[in-house]
Design a protein around this nucleic acid. Structure first.
Lengths: 185, 185
DNA sequence: GCGGTACGATACGCCGCCGTAGCGAAGTGC
DNA sequence: GCACTTCGCTACGGCGGCGTATCGTACCGC
């Protein structure tokens, strides 16, 4: 039947958003989903397996992946999508608690890195196309560029824990592009 | 006597650095410090009180607060200090786990905000003096400026979880200053 | 409508942690 | 050196989570 699986994952994702990655217990998932604890253990071998699967649900919703031909416009679109997520407490809780837990568990570190690299793919794509067009200098370090662009946004939302305003995103883009547009030292 | 208090705080700070803010139990502190659980409860009314006090130890070590008259040089010094902390796994664990937990507990949110505003005071001081000297435009939004400057560094260390290189810090400074030096829109 | 499967409910033993209590042994002040 | 404080040790009842086992039942395909 597997009619319970979906509701279990949904409940688990909601709990991750509320309580954080390490604050979710199987008992709580069972209570919230209406499923029995036994049923959960029938579907997943361990707590980690369930969490990993449920995590995708609340963090994987992809960013837009525009290709307008204009670097600035592409960035505006993709960072608009990112801003929506950064201003969502549940998303921040999920990502933040996983990032935190990743420092103490190799398995979680892998999950976190996978999530990260999947999530920023739209952005790296934009940057690579901009390099091909000549809008950004060749040999650009994509990793550095991503950190320069989204770093201020993540800091604002997840460290300072304050809302990310559209005007601030614009400033961050201006700052990053001013630097990235220069030939490298 | 109070000879036990110091060792308890020290053990608690070490555990925060290792296990994160919400991964510390009184029993673990007792075992690690050599003190009895009873003694801990004699000194602190609750787990939270102890954690708050111990947190200061492993996160409060102040950044340098230079005033060389040169904005770039001041930034170089203070961000050098910050980079040392960001490349320390214990510091990241402490700050990151508190930032994460702050989303679910008002008391911890206050502690986190206090830690943040204390920690960035050297940086805000530098920026304010630069504005007074005319090196930065008047009316500069200090909050925005701080996020622009340190955001990429925090992202690199605590989100991407990779080492922060000196060259990257230089690029982040260049990017932020290029934007901050402009008149605001 | 009959077998098989997926499920819910309950109960179990185990563990780790909570916060408290009682006691005896050190160290400290005078 | 005596009173007093601080401390370590042990034990307690309670709680919540773990992962497993058992049993009864609802749903499915055919």
């Amino acid at each position: 039947m597997i009619r319970s699986k979906a509701s279990i994952i949904e409940a688990c994702a909601a709990l991750i958003a509320e309580e954080g990655f390490s604050g979710v217990s199987i008992e709580a998932v069972a209570a919230r989903s209406g499923a029995a604890k036994t049923t959960i253990y029938r579907h997943w071998p361990s707590r980690e397996a369930l969490l990993a699967e449920a995590f995708g649900v609340c963090a994987d919703a992809a960013l837009p992946s525009p290709d307008t031909g204009s670097l600035r416009e592409d960035l505006r679109v993709v960072l608009g999508g990112l801003t929506l997520k950064l201003n969502d407490a549940g998303w921040c809780s999920a990502i933040g608690s996983l990032a935190d837990a990743a420092g103490r568990d190799v398995t979680l570190e892998r999950l976190h890195q996978t999530t990260l690299s999947t999530g920023r793919r739209p952005l790296t794509g934009i940057l690579e196309r901009a390099v091909e067009r000549g809008d950004l200098p060749p040999g650009l370090d994509i990793e550095d560029a991503v950190a320069l662009i989204v770093g201020p946004l993540f800091y604002r939302a997840m460290i300072a824990r304050q809302p990310v305003a559209e005007a601030f995103v614009a400033r961050a883009v201006d700052a990053a592009l001013a630097e990235l547009g220069r030939a490298r030292t």
